[in-house]
Design a protein around this nucleic acid. Structure first.
Lengths: 107, 107
DNA sequence: GGAATATATGAACAAGTATTCAGATATAAT
DNA sequence: ATTATATCTGAATACTTGTTCATATATTCC
């Protein structure tokens, strides 16, 4: 309890732990290369080489970025021979992406 | 036209300019301090000093962060004497915030 | 006017991040 | 087994970013 307790309750400010988690989630969407990867995977699963080619990223950079996205469970993988196919892990990812895109396109 | 043109059309990959813009938008949400500021402003306008106090950020850091948010038009300002009150600029901001929060809390 | 208060600003610094490079691992083809 | 292909990894580097510190601007009060 301190002199801001009532205000804090009123505005329901995000605590630091959740703020950290939420920041990590949004950070996944905070880089143009990752966004292009996400947009590529929006409707289609795709292997690393193809993602690399259509985004113009090197294979190494692509792989690094995909690892980050996978650690956040935003993408999942399916292995087929020596290829690894990535796809978006859940609908939330698409919704966040679409909502952001909608914001920059209209209003 | 190149050998990926059809694939690119099919997956509708985000072009670099829009990817850059979208990344800037999501970057606003990619830092714990800014998220706490946004959460504080969710239902209430608030002056810089109060934001500084309830977030625990210095006044300077708060001001710097608010400037970034204002440049992205995510917050707007209202001046009253020597105080400046900040509030979220549009409903999109809340929706994005809530959607992200929902994602880290459930699922 | 001069002091006090609220906010903004620019430079400097530390910490974080995206990419590249070189090389490692794993699977397939010969 | 050897070679080729797909992906991954760790270290190095250039770049970005959040905060602090010192100072500036603007407004109110006396």
């Amino acid at each position: 309890m301190n002199k801001y307790s009532d205000i804090i309750r009123e505005v329901d400010i995000l605590d630091e732990q959740h703020a950290q988690l939420l920041a990590e989630l949004f950070s996944a969407f905070s880089d143009p290369s990752r966004l292009r990867i996400i947009s590529a995977l929006k409707d289609l699963e795709m292997n690393v080489g193809t993602i690399s080619e259509i985004t113009g990223l090197s294979e190494s950079a692509t792989s690094h970025q995909l690892r980050g996205l996978r650690q956040l469970r935003l993408v999942r993988t399916r292995k087929e021979g020596r290829q690894v196919f990535y796809s978006l892990d859940d609908e939330h990812v698409k919704v966040l992406y679409d909502l952001g895109l909608n914001h920059i396109l209209h209003g």
